[in-house]
Design a protein around this nucleic acid. Structure first.
Lengths: 206, 206
DNA sequence: GTCTATAAACGGATAGAC
DNA sequence: GTCTATCCGTTTATAGAC
C-alpha cells in the first residue's frame, strides 16, 4: 500500500471501473458498426460517441481494424461460452439442439451488436485475422452439424440434409438480430421459445 | 430507314442490344457490390469491370447511389414478377406457401447479386429512396404474412406467431444467398426442394 | 461516348503540445 | 490521457478536350 515513485496507478479516479474504458469503447463501437456497417462507420463517429476526438481514440487502439478484431473475438468468445460450453455436455441430442437454439437466440437478442457484426463483417478483417476467425466460426458450425448428425443416426432427424439444415438454423437464429428490438413487445426468452418451437418442429421427426 | 440529320441513332453498332449498355453496367455493378459490399466498392471498381474509366461511367449514371437505387428497384421487380405475380392466384394456401418458397429460393440462388443487395444495402440509400424501397418490401412481407394467416385460419399452421414465422421464412430464404454457389454441387431447384421441405415441415401442421 | 485532368471532400493515422 | 493540427491516400464527382 505504500506510495511508489515510478508506478503511478493509471486506474480509478472516476467511478468507472479502471481499465474498462477500453471495453466501453469496444461496446460502443460494436453498436455503431452494427447499425451503420463497418465501412460506413468512421473513427470519428466512434470517437464522438465515447466523448473523445479521433486522435484521442487512437490512445486506446492501434486502428480501426484492431477495433473490429477485438469486437469479433469478443463475440466469438460469447458464443463459445454461452452456447458451446453450456450445451456440449448434454447427451440427449434432442435436448442439446433445443438448448443450442435457445441459448444462441437469447445471446443474439440481448448481445445483439457484436454477434451481428461477427456474422456480417468478417471480411473487413485482414487476411490472417479473417482466416483465424473463420476457423473459429467453423468450429461452432461443426458443433451444430454434429448435433444434427447425431439426431440423424438415431432416426430423429427429418428427411433433410444435415449440412443445409444447419445453415438454415444459422440463418434463422442470426436473422433475429435483424428484427429484434430490445424495447419491443417480446422478451428475448419469448423469442427464443418461438424460434426453438419453429426450428425443432421443422428439424425433428415427431 | 432513310438517314436523318438531327437524330443520329445512338443505338446498335456493336452486337450489344442498343441502350442495354446501362443494363449491363447495372448487372456488373450488382455483382461487385454483392461481393464486396456497397461502401467497399468504388466507382472505379465498377468502371474497370465494364471497360470504362471512372469519368466514362458517369455518362451512364448520375452517381453511386443512383446505381444502387436502380439495382435495388430491379431486384424488387424481380421478386414481384417471379414470386408475387406467380403465386397470388393460387387459392390453396398450402400450395401457395410452397410455391412462394420455391420461386423465391430459385430467384435468390440464380439471380443472387441484386437480391442479396436488396436485403443488405437498403440503408445505403438516401432517406427518401430508402423509405420507398422499404415500403415496397413491406408489401412482399405482407403477402407472405397473409398466406400464413390464411393457413392459420384454416387450422393448418403450427402453433406459431405468423409474424415471427414470416420473418423466419425470410431469413432462411435470403440466407441461401450467403452460401449457395452456382458452380457447386446442387442445382437451384434441388436447393429449393430442400428449403421448401424444411420450411413447410416446420410451418405446417401435418 | 469516352478520355485526361483535376477539384473538393473525406477518412485513417501520426506528431507533438499540454 | 486527451487535444489541435496536419499528412497522405482514396473517393466521389465534374470540366473540358477529342
Amino acid at each position: 500500500m505504500a506510495t511508489q515513485t515510478t508506478k503511478r496507478s493509471s486506474k480509478k479516479d472516476h467511478n468507472g471501473t479502471a481499465e474498462d474504458r477500453t471495453a466501453e469503447i469496444c461496446r460502443t463501437a460494436a453498436q455503431i458498426i452494427c447499425e451503420k456497417g463497418f465501412d460506413a462507420t468512421s473513427m470519428n463517429d466512434i470517437a464522438v460517441a465515447v466523448n473523445l476526438t479521433k486522435a484521442g481514440l487512437y490512445y486506446y487502439t492501434t486502428g480501426k481494424q484492431d477495433l473490429l478484431y477485438r469486437i469479433i473475438n469478443y463475440a466469438m468468445s460469447l458464443v463459445e461460452k454461452n452456447v458451446i460450453e453450456r450445451c456440449s455436455d448434454i447427451q440427449n441430442p434432442k435436448e442439446r439442439l433445443d438448448q443450442i437454439i435457445r441459448n444462441h437466440v437469447v445471446l443474439v437478442a440481448e448481445g445483439g451488436g457484436p454477434i451481428a457484426i461477427l456474422s456480417d463483417e468478417v471480411n473487413c478483417l485482414p487476411k490472417a485475422q479473417r482466416r483465424e476467425v473463420i476457423r473459429r466460426k467453423r468450429g461452432y458450425l461443426e458443433f451444430v452439424r454434429q448435433t444434427l448428425r447425431d439426431l440423424e443416426s438415431e432416426g430423429l432427424l427429418q428427411d433433410l440434409d444435415p449440412d443445409i439444415a444447419s445453415l438454415n438454423l444459422f440463418a434463422t437464429v442470426l436473422g433475429v438480430a435483424r428484427w429484434y428490438r430490445q424495447d419491443g413487445a417480446m422478451s428475448s426468452q419469448e423469442v427464443a421459445d418461438e424460434i426453438a418451437k419453429f426450428l425443432c418442429d421443422g428439424l425433428l421427426r415427431e
